[in-house]
Design a protein around this nucleic acid. Structure first.
Lengths: 229, 229
DNA sequence: CCAAAAGTGTTGATCCTACACCCATGT
DNA sequence: ACATGGGTGTAGGATCAACACTTTTGG
């Protein structure tokens, strides 16, 4: 006997996560290989379970499949073409997430037998419509970081120098945050962040073969007040 | 025997539509009274059917319940609290839509026994979490009209005068498009729309106890090229 | 001393605000 | 003639891009 019965038809509902990070200063997305997904690369994600909401589902799936937790995650689109999965009708609820650069501890998991970062300019063929979803997520991230530049902080753990922050913006290809107009980037940042108290100066410096660079940290309290998801 | 069976649990999926329009120059939302919704006011919408995608579902439900079609409709959020509907777990996919001001022909429908516009400043108590959804939709529309001002064209049928267009912006309470700075609104519009070719002058005029006002029309081709959903 | 990257001052163009003013119609 | 709303010109302030410059470290 079937486990689930109803007088009405029901679709399946899953979450898929476009997880972005900086790897070698390139914007990169995390992909997984799972036993069921035609053995190809795909976005991390999975089916909604009874009693949880979509946000919980996305966090749970990401944690189960990669063992990580992220400082930023939010919904950006739905995918509901009845034929997007040939086996049955699945609504995919897509999330954008950000992981700070640095070590990624991948947890062993029976379903997932490979996990890796891929430069977003050079993604492999993905299962289902995941190339479309991933591309949309990247496009969305470019819009988002212009509307809510504090998103860039989520790419850094334990503070950042202004040059590092600028490189983060540059990884998105945004115009104003672009290449070597260091001066204007800093003026813009001062204007943007100072009024809102978004960043705080620390007394720490990043050392190198050059003048040490001051390290800044995001002001978590002020960040919570930022509008726009 | 049950109509639908599966080895896995499935949620229900529905679309709900926040349909906005201008009524007496006030931003207003369309609400319906249905036999099943505790006999209270609620957003138009209903369950996804087998073989259709979410956009089709939203258009179909709106058409079935109110007999109208709209020039703008797009997804803005999901609602998935497991307890948002006490009867069973329903994912609500929320859409924002715009209807031009003017006559609304309501089609008789057995499920819906009342339909009406409500000023968004003064909404009644709605079924389920529809007050939350509707409020979010209105907030979203305020963001959207700043990011993509051409949305304002969807509130007008058969052309608009510049004053009418400005009143549309004013209905959202936006700062720059605000009260009686006619001069700057027009300068801003010229700068925004001229470069993109978004509006075209017609040779028609709106008459009144005063100098006739030139009527403009949106350029549909250029509108399609506008970025941002 | 030199290389390399951090960090600052300032000008000129551009955009936006505020305010004043003229124009065309109905009564 | 005048009331009403349509429609425009423009000076001064704020904002922003571009470029040149100084500072501090390691080797």
């Amino acid at each position: 006997m079937a486990f689930f019965e109803s007088n009405y038809w029901h679709p399946s509902v899953a979450t898929d996560i476009v997880l972005l990070s900086l790897r070698q200063k390139k914007l990169s997305a995390l992909l997984v290989k799972r036993l069921d997904h035609e053995n190809g690369w795909a976005l991390p994600g999975g089916f909604l379970e009874k009693g949880e909401d979509l946000d919980q589902c996305a966090h749970r799936e990401l944690n189960e499949e990669t063992g990580i937790q992220v400082p930023y995650m939010s919904h950006f689109a739905n995918y509901s073409d009845p034929n997007r999965d040939s086996r049955h009708q699945v609504i995919s609820v897509a999330y954008l997430a950000v992981h700070p650069s640095g070590k990624l501890r991948i947890r062993a998991n029976s379903d997932v037998f490979d996990v890796n970062w891929f430069n977003v300019e050079n993604l492999p063929d993905l299962s289902f419509d995941h190339n479309k979803i991933c591309g949309d997520g990247i496009k969305y991230s470019r819009l988002l970081i212009e509307r809510k530049p504090s998103l860039a902080f989520a790419f850094h753990n334990g503070g950042f120098t202004l040059t590092e922050l600028q490189q983060t913006f540059a990884a998105f290809g945004g115009h104003k945050f672009s290449p070597e107009n260091k001066r204007n980037f800093r003026l813009w940042l001062k204007n943007y962040a100072d009024g809102r108290g978004l960043v705080v100066e620390t007394d720490k410096f990043r050392e190198g073969n050059h003048r040490p660079a001051r390290i800044y940290e995001p002001n978590l309290e002020a960040l919570d007040k930022e509008t726009i998801k």
